[in-house]
Design a protein around this nucleic acid. Structure first.
Lengths: 114, 114
DNA sequence: CGAAGACATCGACACTTGTCAATGTCTTGT
DNA sequence: ACAAGACATTGACAAGTGTCGATGTCTTCG
């Protein structure tokens, strides 16, 4: 069995369809809302932009604390939220954790804004 | 001077560019975060889907309270947030206020998720 | 083993947010 | 003028969120 390369996020999976489709039911609305809530914070958006614009497509967590200007526990907390929202993937390599964005997830959210 | 047909929203205008571009500065991140925060609530997403999927493209506010299952002041509050985020436009006609979505604004946010 | 360093977790706190009941403001029809 | 109805505003409260310092867990290197 192949070694698992990266942990699985707990993204609620927004499924298909735009917001302007058949009136969203409460459950679907909650899932989508959780996803957008992950984007509703300046620190997290800056983390995403740092990770997404990195060459090689990935960044070591240790390089994310200083540019954000927030404490290490706070950055760790935000990265956890981004991960659980399925927006970033992480992979532990040695002492470090490497992050990269998950384009498919962004595609889902973009589709919801059709 | 022509009579103003609809009120102007106070949308922060996200400007161009994806999140994965040159590391977002704090100010830009805050503006974007505010926009996404408007989408980060189930009630508001359902309001958007109700408005967006309405025939004629617009809905009377009076038809939005019951489907959402929340009190009239609460719905009024959410509509105000959507309006200030530039996601919906409103127009008062007689006793009623008619809402419609603002596609351009959705385009901006979609572009930010490129 | 022991020290160092990268992350994660915990506890606490200020601040924000969603919600409702009560009340206010306008417009329309009688 | 008055009553009715559509929205908006206010005040209050519970729940959620961002932040930090302190501390815990793991991995690597002497």
């Amino acid at each position: 069995m192949a070694k698992k390369a990266s942990a699985k996020s707990t993204a609620p999976s927004v499924c298909c369809g735009s917001v302007a489709e058949v009136p969203l039911d409460e459950t679907a609305a909650e899932a989508l809302a959780t996803a957008f809530a992950a984007l509703a914070d300046p620190a997290r958006l800056r983390l995403l932009s740092l990770i997404g614009s990195a060459e090689g497509g990935e960044v070591c967590g240790c390089d994310l604390v200083e540019p954000i200007g927030r404490s290490q526990p706070t950055v760790s907390h935000h990265l956890k939220i981004l991960f659980e929202a399925g927006l970033v993937a992480k992979e532990k390599r040695g002492v470090w954790v490497w992050y990269r964005v998950v384009p498919d997830r962004f595609g889902e959210l973009r589709a919801a804004l059709a």
